[in-house]
Lab assay of single mutants.
Amino acid sequence: GSLMYASIFGNVSAIIQRLYSGTARYHTQMLRVREFIRFHQIPNPLRQRLEEYFQHAWSYTNGIDMNAVLKGFPECLQADICLHLNRSLLQHCKPFRGATKGCLRALAMKFKTTHAPPGDTLVHAGDLLTALYFISRGSIEILRGDVVVAILGKNDIFGEPLNLYARPGKSNGDVRALTYCDLHKIHRDDLLEVLDMYPEFSDHFWSSLEITFNLRDTNMIPGSPGSTELEGGFSRQRKRKLSFRRRTDKDTEQPGEVSALGPGRAGAGPSSRGRPGGPWGESPSSGPSSPESSEDEGPGRSSSPLRLVPFSSPRPPGEPPGGEPLMEDCEKSSDTCNPLSGAFSGVSNIFSFWGDSRGRQYQELPRCPAPTPSLLNIPLSSPGRRPRGDVESRLDALQRQLNRLETRLSADMATVLQLLQRQMTLVPPAYSAVTTPGPGPTSTSPLLPVSPLPTLTLDSLSQVSQFMACEELPPGAPELPQEGPTRRLSLPGQLGALTSQPLHRHGSDPGS
């Protein structure tokens, strides 16, 4: 009898404990919600809404976190579960008819179910419309201010047509639940991603989709105040780019002037030289400038040598048109050559190039014969006009050509200096018209024969001689050997007369 009593008592207590286990969990969670309300000092109306929603959600799901349970299964099984949970929507909604099984599984994985109690606001006026909503159960109302403009029910759709707008718009009203509602919502990016994977279904979906109420604000059109608020930074940046392009296009129409201050000032006329910023005076940081632009901040801005204009002085008759350009485009679109090309026009420029290279940067340069637009006047290309890779490749080509020119210049200078040193070592320090008596009659020769300089066969020296023939050397430049009979510069000019005159010897006659 005691054994029977113990078994009955144990079973009854276990049954009672299981009955009250759900209630215990409910009270535990309710205590957490109330502690949250007390800690954050939530006001009474919002506090009442929180408690009511918790009670309804507990009775609806029995305190089970559906998302946590669903995430515990593998992905393939999750797709089947989501397809079952959203079967009513996918079967009865017209846009989803005719979709393949794979497309429906992908869509079912992207849908999220939302449960809303009465009085809950789903979308506020001015919120971004980031999702498309399908009503599965219940009814909602749409308000503009305090005026109800629409009441939607089961199988209705609200949001915005995503295929017509590249960016999400703003809501033009509040969406509030009238009863307990079940909503299926899919985010904008998720829907577009699935439709991109199934393009054959995309056309059918957009053609058959009928949005019951379009929440997009109709005033959000390009150029409206609301649109400016939504895309303020983007609009200002776009206007700045367009104004920069218009100014650079105007600059290219004036090829007669070359400016070292950047493309923003290349198009300024002579009357605007004294102004601080020219056409860019209202925004000094709008356009890029070269490193020399920092010198323009000092006094005497109108007389600054940074602004270059072609000189009108005539060229000498024998002067060549100019050196070879550094870039391939210089032959086609440049009416002034790079300062480095002028360094190779003569030997005198070679000796004085490194010492006063900055001073020569603004000297007169030889002109190319074609009066085409200036290379320095070409505006900086924006990322939309020329690819970045093209600019980098041009810079690399320019750097390689500069290296080759520097190597060639160093070799030419070394060769010229070597020839000058050899000339100085071969010439005796001094010569006299009267020579010392020699031991015999073989001493009648006034000077030792001097062998002429070897013929220069280097390509670089031939180019130097060509430049010497075309360029007029300055007075202080050293002379180079030329073709024809060679003669030492330090010898007297009348050596031929010395050989014809008898030598005057000093000596005593033994017979006297």
Rank of each mutant, 00 (worst) to 15 (best):
G126Y: 01
D127W: 01
D127L: 02
L128M: 10
A131Y: 09
A131K: 10
F134D: 02
I135A: 01
I135R: 02
S136N: 11
S136C: 04
R137T: 11
R137V: 08
R137C: 10
G138Y: 03
G138A: 01
I140E: 01
E141Y: 03
V147N: 11
V148W: 01
V148G: 03
V149E: 03
A150Y: 01
A150H: 01
A150G: 11
L152M: 04
G153C: 09
K154S: 09
N155Q: 09
N155R: 06
N155S: 09
N155V: 03
D156M: 06
I157C: 11
I157K: 02
F158Q: 02
G159S: 02
E160W: 02
E160H: 03
L162A: 10
N163D: 08
N163P: 06
N163T: 09
Y165C: 04
A166Q: 08
R167F: 10
R167V: 08
P168N: 03
P168V: 12
P168G: 03
G169I: 01
S171A: 10
S171R: 01
G173D: 03
G173K: 04
G173Y: 11
V175R: 02
V175A: 06
A177I: 03
A177C: 12
A177Q: 01
T179L: 02
D182Y: 09
D182R: 10
L183P: 02
H184Y: 04
K185P: 03
I186W: 01
I186Q: 01
I186P: 01
R188V: 09
D189V: 08
L191A: 01
L192Q: 04
V194P: 01
L195K: 02
L195T: 05
D196I: 08
M197A: 06
P199R: 05
P199D: 06
F201A: 07
F201C: 11
S202H: 12
S202K: 14
D203I: 06
D203C: 10
F205Y: 03
F205A: 01
W206C: 07
S208W: 04
L209F: 14
E210F: 06
I211V: 12
I211A: 02
F213Y: 12
N214D: 04
N214H: 01
N214V: 03
L215C: 01
L215W: 03
N219Q: 13
M220V: 12
P222C: 07
S224H: 10
P225M: 12
S227W: 07
S227D: 14
T228E: 10
L230F: 07
G232E: 12
G233F: 06
G233Y: 11
F234G: 12
F234D: 13
S235T: 11
R236W: 07
R236S: 08
R236P: 12
Q237V: 10
R238G: 11
R240L: 09
R240E: 12
R240N: 07
R240S: 10
K241Q: 13
L242N: 08
S243A: 09
S243G: 10
F244S: 10
F244K: 10
R245K: 13
R245N: 14
R246K: 08
T248L: 12
T248G: 09
T248Y: 10
T248M: 13
K250W: 14
K250C: 11
K250L: 11
D251H: 07
D251I: 08
D251G: 09
D251P: 13
T252N: 14
T252Q: 13
T252W: 11
G256T: 09
V258W: 08
V258G: 11
V258N: 13
V258S: 13
S259Y: 08
S259G: 11
L261Q: 15
L261G: 10
L261D: 07
G262L: 10
G264Q: 12
A268K: 07
G269F: 05
G269I: 10
P270A: 07
S271D: 04
S271C: 05
S272I: 14
S272K: 04
S272E: 02
P279L: 12
G281P: 11
G281D: 11
S283D: 15
P284K: 04
P284Y: 12
P284R: 11
G287I: 15
P288E: 11
P288N: 15
S289Q: 15
S290G: 11
S293F: 15
S293H: 13
E295Q: 13
D296Y: 08
D296W: 12
P299L: 03
R301P: 13
R301M: 12
R301I: 04
S303N: 03
S303E: 10
P305R: 09
R307V: 10
L308K: 11
P310H: 03
P310T: 03
F311E: 07
F311I: 12
S312F: 12
S313I: 09
S313V: 08
S313C: 07
P314Y: 15
P317C: 15
E319P: 06
E319D: 12
P320H: 15
P320L: 15
G323F: 14
G323M: 06
G323V: 11
E324H: 07
L326M: 01
M327P: 08
E331V: 11
E331C: 09
K332E: 13
D335C: 06
D335S: 11
T336R: 09
C337Q: 15
C337V: 14
P339Y: 06
L340R: 08
A343R: 08
A343Y: 09
A343V: 09
F344K: 10
F344Y: 04
V347R: 07
V347K: 12
S348Q: 12
N349G: 11
N349D: 10
F351H: 14
F353M: 05
G355W: 04
S357Q: 13
S357R: 09
R358F: 10
R360H: 15
R360A: 08
Q363L: 05
Q363E: 09
E364T: 07
L365D: 05
L365I: 14
L365P: 08
R367E: 10
C368G: 10
P369R: 08
A370Q: 10
P371Y: 08
T372Y: 08
T372K: 07
P373A: 08
S374R: 09
L375R: 09
N377D: 01
N377Y: 04
L380N: 15
S381P: 12
S382I: 15
S382W: 05
P383N: 05
P383F: 10
R385M: 15
P387A: 08
P387R: 09
R388W: 15
V391D: 03
V391M: 15
V391Y: 05
E392G: 08
R394G: 09
D396G: 08
A397F: 13
A397G: 12
L398Q: 02
R400Y: 12
R400E: 05
Q401W: 05
L402V: 07
L402D: 03
N403Y: 08
R404H: 05
E406W: 04
T407D: 09
T407L: 08
L409C: 06
S410Y: 05
A411H: 15
M413Y: 04
M413P: 03
M413I: 13
T415A: 12
T415P: 04
T415G: 07
T415Q: 06
V416W: 01
L417G: 06
L417I: 04
Q418H: 14
L419K: 13
M424G: 09
M424L: 10
T425G: 08
T425D: 05
V427M: 01
P428I: 06
P429A: 10
P429M: 13
P429N: 14
P429K: 05
A430S: 10
Y431R: 15
Y431F: 13
A433S: 09
V434L: 13
T435G: 11
T436V: 07
P437R: 11
P437Q: 08
P437W: 11
P437L: 08
S443K: 06
T444E: 10
T444N: 12
T444H: 14
S445L: 06
S445E: 13
S445P: 07
L448E: 08
P449M: 06
P449T: 09
V450K: 01
V450N: 13
S451R: 10
P452H: 10
P452G: 10
L453A: 12
L453I: 10
L453H: 09
L453W: 08
L453Q: 07
L456Q: 09
L456V: 10
T457H: 07
T457R: 11
D459A: 09
Q463Y: 13
Q466N: 05
Q466T: 11
Q466V: 06
Q466F: 03
F467C: 08
C470H: 09
C470A: 06
E471P: 10
E472R: 12
E472C: 13
E472T: 13
P475G: 10
G476E: 09
G476H: 13
A477D: 15
A477Y: 15
P478M: 11
L480K: 11
P481H: 04
Q482W: 12
P485H: 15
P492I: 06
G493W: 13
Q494E: 05
G496A: 07
G496M: 10
L498P: 11
T499S: 14
S500G: 11
S500I: 12
S500V: 10
L503R: 09
H504S: 05
G507R: 12
S508N: 04
S508F: 06
D509Q: 07
P510Q: 09
P510H: 09
G511F: 01
